[in-house]
């Protein structure tokens, strides 16, 4: 399963003060706090690790059908590579490992997480409201299944996880949406999707 998360770095700087007392302790393990305190660019490192946790938990939520939880400490991040524009890592969520890839710019950090490295995930990042990412997702999926975009409805399950439905039947949920500030994104995987569609 896959998940993704985007952080608008300017909005994060305005709206979230991670330096406030207790913030880091609620979100990051001792090992992660060590990565942050020894990094040259602490703001980027905080939001990179944050987006890794969020993306991995979304993938985990999808895989196990779980509600939203405020359990950032249960997602343990390990950075494998971290350069100016990219990072890769692993996030352990209750013994389940998710692989992450992050794109870093001066404006945003986007992380995609996948359980299986060969999920063939496609990412799309828009500097636009979430309606644009949603429309692009629907266009991509409907095209793949030879449907008209208008035939697909974007819905949410009881836990707030989105899925696409055709004639009120869920046909596709291997995607994740994210939005923050100026940015909206999606990740989707269309690999080995044929079987799930033939039945409709």
């Amino acid at each position: 399963m896959i998940g993704n998360d985007v952080v608008d770095l300017h909005l994060a700087a305005r709206e979230s003060n991670w330096r406030r007392k207790g913030f880091l302790e609620k979100v990051f393990t001792t090992a992660e706090q060590e990565i942050i305190s020894t990094s040259k660019d602490k703001d980027t490192t905080v939001w990179l690790l944050w987006s890794m946790k969020e993306a991995a938990y979304k993938a985990h939520q999808r895989a196990f059908n779980l509600p939203v939880k405020l359990n950032w400490l249960a997602q343990e991040c390990k950075l494998l590579t971290f350069s100016l524009e990219h990072a890769s890592g692993e996030v352990n969520v209750n013994g389940n490992l998710y692989f992450t890839t992050s794109k870093i710019t001066s404006e945003f950090i986007h992380t995609s997480a996948e359980k299986d490295r060969s999920s063939g995930a496609e990412n799309a990042i828009f500097e636009a409201p979430s309606s644009e990412a949603k429309a692009a997702l629907i266009k991509r999926v409907s095209g793949y299944f030879s449907l008209e975009p208008a035939q697909l409805q974007l819905e949410k399950d009881a836990f707030g996880m989105p899925f696409l439905s055709l004639s009120k039947t869920s046909i596709f949920d291997r995607f994740s949406l994210s939005g923050h500030g100026r940015f909206s994104t999606y990740i989707l995987s269309l690999i080995n999707c044929e079987t799930s569609v033939k039945q409709y």
Partner: peptide
Amino acid sequence: ANLVDIVLDVEDEFNIAIDNDSMDNMT
């Protein structure tokens, strides 16, 4: 990220410590 702020604000305002298990379900 602001949910973290809410947890911290609640701790300050009510003078309590919210452990991780409790925080999990504070939605």
